[in-house]
Design a protein around this nucleic acid. Structure first.
Lengths: 215, 215
DNA sequence: TAGATTGTTAATCGATTAACAATC
DNA sequence: TAGATTGTTAATCGATTAACAATC
C-alpha cells in the first residue's frame, strides 16, 4: 500500500473546476495559460492555483505559464478520468432517469449499466438504452457484473433497505442523492453525499439575509 | 440597510446539517440535546457547534444543553424557512420534473409555480399539478407572477439564452444545475451552483486514490 | 449544593496569500 | 539579455479546537 498523500479536501474540490475551465479555453483554441489568467477565469488567486498544482508537482514553466492541454491532461489523470467504473442507479424515478441519460457522467468514467426499482410497473422498461431491473435482483446483478459504483436516488425511507442490500456486495463507491447523510463503518467504501436540500437551505439563508438587509 | 453580519460560508454550510439532525431527534421524541450529542450525530466537534451557534447568540443553557425543538426553530428562522419564494423551473426534462415533484423543496419555502421548456411537444403538459409553459413567455410570466427564484435545469448550451431572458426580470435568486458556473456582475442576485459534475469528479479522485493504494 | 454543560476567550492548526529566487 | 512567470518558502489570515469561568 502506497503511503497516503493526504491532500486537503479544499484542494480536491478545486481540481474539477480547473479542469472544466481548461476544457473551455482549449475549445477556444488557447494554447498557453498563466496562473493569473486561470485565476481570473475561476475566481481563485494565481497564488492558490500554483500552490494547488504544486501539491502534485509543478506542471508549468517559468516565464511561460502552463500549456493548457498538458495541464488539462495532468488534471484528468489526477482526477482519475483514465479509470472507468461500471455503475448502477437505484431508483428509476425522474432523478434516476435524469442521471442515466446525462452524458457527462459517462465522460467522467462512470458507465451506467442498469437502473433498479421496486415498482414492478416500470421494471422491464428502458431509459434510453439502460434497462430498469427489479430491485429484488440487485445483489446478484452487482456481483455478476462487477459493478463498483452505486448511485442512490431513492426517497429517504428506502435508504436503509438499499444499504442492507448493497453492503452484501463488493462495491467501491456510493454517490448518494437521498436526503440523508450516508456514513458507513466500512471506511473502504467511498461516499459522496450530494445534499441538494442543504444546498437549497444555503440559498435560503442568503436570500433571507438579503430580505432583511433591504428592509 | 442593516450592517452585514458576515458569517463565514463554512458556518452557513453546517447549519442545514444541524437542522436536519435536530429534526431527526425531535421525531424520535428527544427533548434535550447537548453540543457533544449533536456532535456525535453530525460528526462535528462539540466545540465547533457551540462556536457556530455563538455567532447567532447562544441558544442553550449551562448545565442543561439545548432544547431540541427550540434550537431547531431558531435554526429554521436563521435559515429563512419562515420566508417563501415563488419559483419556476426552467427545463422540464427529467431533472426539472424531479425537482418539481420533490416535496422537500416546498418544505424549504420554495414554491414551484411552473416549469418552462422550449419543446412545444411538452408545453401544455403538467408535472403533478405544475404546468409546463412555453419558454417564449417566461419574461412576462415572471413579472406578472412575482417569481423570485429560478431553478435552471437546462443543458449547458441553453444557459446563455436563459440568462438573457431572466435577467430582464426582477428575480432574487438562481439555483443552477447546469454544468457551468453562473457568475453575474449584478451581485444582488444570489446564485447557488450545484455542480453535480464536480461532485462526481471528486468521487472519481478518491476512487482513483484507492485503486492506486490497493496496488 | 454538586455536576453538567454552556458561552466565550485563548491557543492551535491549517489554508490562503505574499514574496521572491530560480529559470525559461 | 530582459521580461515573464513559475515553484516554493515565509507570512498572514481565518477557522477549528481547547480550556475554563460562568451559571443553570
Amino acid at each position: 500500500m502506497k503511503k497516503k498523500s493526504k491532500i486537503s479536501d479544499a484542494v480536491i474540490r478545486r481540481l474539477p473546476i480547473y479542469h472544466r475551465f481548461l476544457n473551455d479555453v482549449i475549445n477556444k483554441g488557447i494554447v498557453r495559460i498563466s496562473s493569473s489568467e486561470l485565476g481570473d477565469l475561476t475566481g481563485f488567486t494565481a497564488s492558490q492555483i500554483r500552490q494547488d498544482l504544486h501539491n502534485f508537482g509543478g506542471f508549468g514553466q517559468q516565464g511561460y505559464g502552463y500549456n493548457a492541454v498538458e495541464l488539462r491532461d495532468k488534471l484528468s489523470e489526477i482526477l482519475g478520468l483514465n479509470y472507468t467504473y461500471d455503475s448502477v442507479v437505484i431508483g428509476a424515478g425522474h432523478l434516476g432517469s435524469a442521471i442515466a441519460r446525462y452524458k457527462g457522467f459517462r465522460q467522467s468514467g462512470f458507465i451506467i449499466k442498469a437502473l433498479f426499482d421496486v415498482d414492478k410497473n416500470i421494471v422491464g422498461n428502458k431509459v434510453d438504452d439502460v434497462p430498469i431491473l427489479d430491485m429484488a435482483d440487485i445483489v446478484s446483478y452487482i456481483n455478476e457484473n462487477n459493478i463498483s459504483v452505486v448511485v442512490i436516488t431513492t426517497p429517504k425511507a428506502a435508504v436503509d433497505d438499499v444499504l442492507n442490500k448493497i453492503l452484501q456486495c463488493k462495491i467501491k463507491g456510493i454517490w448518494n442523492f437521498a436526503p440523508v447523510d450516508i456514513v458507513l463503518t466500512d471506511k473502504s467504501i467511498l461516499i459522496e453525499n450530494v445534499k441538494l436540500n442543504d444546498s437549497l437551505l444555503k440559498l435560503s439563508y442568503y436570500l433571507k439575509e438579503k430580505e432583511e438587509e433591504d428592509k
